[in-house]
């Protein structure tokens, strides 16, 4: 049976792993290659390296990183951050990355998704979607919908943000997800900007809305505080994989602990 995946994410800046809360106040947590190797040995199913430096020099750094990881780590890994053209994709895949992840460039130049998929297969092209709740639904109190009160439920919506969560695009996240699938993307890495860094759980509604809208796998990201959050997003949220950073980086939980928790609740995992 296909196992649900547990994916530690390593945010990389100037060649070092960092992790912040809601994309600011970054803290240093080590060497990416060594961390990747340790996670692989600890039972990670995959790794994601996101380069958040976003300068021209960073392109060379991240290519070198892709190759260094390839020599040391024998599980799949995805590299994202600062990819703008087909040459960037090609260089990272040829260095040994299994997949690349594009975010802002996918919005600015959707054709890049198709070019990448045609050249390297859609399984190699991940589109990262950073989404922010913009209305309706939510987890707070809502009156019961009824005709007598005239209240109609407002369905939740999420807007796509780019440039590390700083720029709103006006795109609806669910529609954008469908569109990137049509364009040839093979997997969606979905981050809730609202939940990211707060370790208070994933945005389950968002994840389920996207997973239900597309036929490609969805990796849920943002908000993992413990095994129960991961269990919820893989079951209620219908995600194929869960990405987490802080809970692993700071040693609150091991990957094995998370997987044992999932297995004991009937989720298929690789142990």
């Amino acid at each position: 049976m296909l196992a649900k995946r547990i994916i530690p994410c390593l945010d990389v800046k100037n060649g070092r792993v960092v992790k912040g809360r809601s994309f600011v106040n970054l803290r240093d947590a080590g060497d990416p290659v060594e961390q990747g190797r340790l996670y692989s040995e600890a039972g990670a199913d995959e790794l994601v390296f996101l380069d958040i430096t976003a300068t021209l020099e960073a392109r060379q750094t991240i290519r070198a990183l892709a190759a260094a990881v390839g020599r040391a780590v024998f599980i799949p890994y995805t590299i994202g951050g600062g990819i703008r053209e087909l040459d960037d994709i090609k260089a990272l895949l040829q260095a040994g990355a299994e997949k690349i992840s594009i975010n802002s460039a996918a919005v600015r130049k959707p054709g890049l998704i198709t070019e990448g998929a045609n050249a390297f297969g859609n399984q190699a092209v991940v589109v990262a979607i950073d989404a922010k709740r913009v209305g309706g639904g939510g987890t707070g109190f809502q009156p019961v919908p009824s005709e007598s009160t005239g209240y109609k439920p407002v369905l939740p919506k999420w807007e796509v943000y780019i440039d590390a969560g700083t720029r709103a695009t006006g795109l609806d996240a669910v529609q954008w997800a469908r569109r990137v699938e049509e364009l040839g993307c093979g997997e969606i890495l979905l981050t809730s900007i609202d939940a990211d860094g707060h370790t208070a759980g994933y945005d389950i509604e968002l994840t389920r809305a996207i997973a239900g809208a597309v036929g490609i796998p969805v990796i849920a990201s943002g908000g993992a505080g413990g095994p129960e959050d991961i269990w919820r997003v893989l079951t209620e949220g219908q995600a194929d994989a869960a990405l987490a950073a802080s809970i692993f980086h700071y040693g609150q939980y091991t990957i094995a602990q998370v997987k044992e928790y999932l297995r004991d609740r009937g989720v298929s995992v690789r142990l």
Binding site: M1, L2, A3, K4, R5, D45, E46, N122, Q123, G186, E187, G215, I216, P217, D240, A241, R270
Partner: peptide
């Protein structure tokens, strides 16, 4: 088949 999530991506037995 169309009913499946495709690509199959991940660890299987």
């Amino acid at each position: 088949g169309q009913e499946l999530t495709v690509p199959q991506m991940g660890w299987n037995q």
